[in-house]
Simulated assay, not measured.
Amino acid sequence: MNDAPAAVARTTDCDNDRATWKIIGRVESDDVPAEEACAAYPQTTMTFERKGRGEDFILCLTEIQR
């Protein structure tokens, strides 16, 4: 994912120079706190939640080190 605001964030290959976050896990849920949902991914440094439009999920992210 790039580091753009959530409204325009896009997925891309992790080796793309514009990529700043790597998706390390996806949890299908709408009623679990993000920190709890990503507990299985201890390297998580940020979360992204998507709710509505029939898709409720949490992405567990880690920053790409360059």
Rank of each mutant, 00 (worst) to 15 (best):
M1T: 13
M1Q: 10
M1A: 14
M1P: 11
D3P: 02
D3F: 06
D3C: 12
D3A: 06
A4P: 01
A4Q: 07
A4H: 02
P5H: 10
P5E: 12
P5K: 11
A7H: 11
A7T: 13
A7E: 15
A7P: 03
V8N: 08
R10Q: 15
T11Y: 13
T11W: 14
T12L: 13
T12W: 02
T12K: 02
T12Q: 11
T12V: 09
D13S: 10
D15M: 08
D17E: 10
R18P: 00
A19E: 00
A19W: 01
T20S: 06
T20P: 00
T20C: 12
W21I: 00
W21G: 00
K22Y: 09
K22D: 12
I23D: 05
I23W: 01
I23L: 06
I24N: 08
I24F: 10
G25E: 01
G25C: 07
G25I: 09
R26L: 03
R26F: 03
R26H: 05
R26C: 01
V27L: 02
V27Q: 04
V27E: 10
V27M: 07
E28Y: 05
E28V: 06
E28N: 11
D30P: 08
D31V: 12
D31C: 10
P33V: 06
P33H: 05
P33C: 03
P33W: 06
A34S: 13
E35F: 11
E35M: 08
E35S: 13
A37H: 12
C38S: 07
C38W: 04
C38L: 09
A39L: 08
A39V: 00
A40S: 09
A40E: 09
A40H: 10
A40R: 03
Y41S: 03
Y41R: 03
Q43Y: 08
Q43S: 14
Q43H: 09
Q43T: 08
T44S: 07
T44I: 02
T45H: 00
T45S: 04
M46P: 01
M46L: 12
T47V: 14
T47W: 14
T47P: 07
E49T: 15
E49N: 15
E49P: 08
E49G: 10
G52Q: 08
R53N: 13
R53E: 15
G54Y: 14
E55N: 14
D56V: 06
D56W: 07
F57P: 03
I58G: 04
I58E: 02
C60W: 11
C60I: 04
T62D: 04
T62S: 07
E63W: 02
E63P: 04
E63F: 01
I64T: 00
I64Y: 06
I64L: 07
I64P: 00
I64N: 02
I64K: 03
Q65G: 02
R66Y: 04
R66N: 06
